[in-house]
Design a protein around this nucleic acid. Structure first.
Lengths: 201, 201
DNA sequence: TTGTAATGTTGACATCGTAAACATTGTTGG
DNA sequence: CCAACAATGTTTACGATGTCAACATTACAA
């Protein structure tokens, strides 16, 4: 019998799209392969034709999420074409805002146990991958090269500077989005206050 | 028939202890109630006599982990009895070191979706709970009250200052322990460089 | 056209969280 | 002392899940 919908055609991208939506809606803990398959109107083992296992699909979803994240950061940078210091501040603010608005993405983008799966076999996937952290890194590098330690006492080691800047915004994002930092006011306003103070850069 | 080991006596604390060990050894994803039960030499539903469900046990384990964490922070503070600035730096360093050495604890102590379970019913558990974040907060408060914004441009808002300090060390801890920040040198040395620079406090 | 690779389905299995019914033990009031 | 009862542990069962093997359907290339 000829079934029109036997071949779903682009099931792979459909699984990624619906998977990301499912993660947003039901959270990381309630994410399951079978639900994603059902959302695509397909049998529960169909995903195995496109992904080796559950983690493989999650990695693919992660790459899509990373792409969105990177676009946000890039947009922030572009809004200050000539002022690198403002670029960094705005990028940091965007970094925090992104994860506050998409808390589930933190679970996705920062899972150490998934990183080890990204070995040689997955390099084809990684080829067209954008690294938001590379974006972050490069911006700091440009800042430092233009700003040859005119203050005494500031952080001169490049790696230390990157870790400090990146760590600061990442930590703020985590503490707010996990609700560990309790505050009755506006979180993003507070974040702005930190990043635009003289202490930071 | 009289079975000597029918009553396990202190199964509850045994479950927490073995659960914490299991989390350390096999990671958060591979943690299961049945494995913990087996580790205690008990049937797979025995934990339900002491915990309402899996999350309840995880919360109990989390409280134990928080206690350990808080002890580390407290120890760091005590090592500089008279220098509050050094207290904060040392506490920050200990903060990072703790999570670098116990990466799984990050998944435990910072799960937003578990926090909502800590409602009124669990308050009995929370009574003897120590809040490492309270420890952090209080130290910053003491710092600011002794150090009434002698620098212009520094962060004067107390909440902003706490979020900045806490966020910085937390972010560093996360980025290192998830291996998102790649660096061929000594991570803790880099951390030390950041926290003891003039830029930080 | 025919065979083969790509893609989807069905059925099965082990593991898991959890609930219900039952068994054993410690405790307590008559 | 003993009978009721609460506390604690076991057995059994069910549905959800990840994954594998066997099979079905379709696309495509020799």
């Amino acid at each position: 019998m000829v079934n029109e919908s036997y071949h779903h055609e682009n099931l792979k991208s459909e699984l990624i799209k619906n998977g990301l939506k499912l993660l947003d809606e039901e959270g990381y803990e309630n994410f399951s392969l079978r639900k994603v398959a059902k959302a695509c109107g397909v049998s529960h083992t169909a995903p195995y034709r496109h992904f080796r296992n559950k983690d493989d699909l999650i990695i693919a979803i992660t790459l899509k999420a990373e792409h969105r994240f990177n676009s946000s950061l890039q947009e922030a940078i572009n809004s200050y074409p000539n002022d690198i210091k403002s670029q960094i501040k705005e990028m940091g603010y965007t970094y925090v805002k992104f994860f506050v608005e998409n808390p589930e993405y933190l679970r996705l983008l920062f899972r150490s146990d998934l990183k080890k799966h990204l070995n040689n076999e997955n390099c084809e996937i990684l080829k067209d991958n954008v690294q938001p952290f590379g974006t972050f890194y490069n911006t700091i590098v440009r800042y430092q090269s233009e700003n040859q330690s005119n203050d005494a006492g500031c952080i001169t080691d490049l790696n230390a500077l990157v870790l400090a800047c990146w760590g600061l915004v990442h930590g703020i994002a985590v503490l707010i989005s996990t609700k560990d930092f309790v505050y009755e006011g506006d979180y993003l306003e507070l974040t702005r206050k930190i990043l635009w103070s003289e202490t930071f850069l």
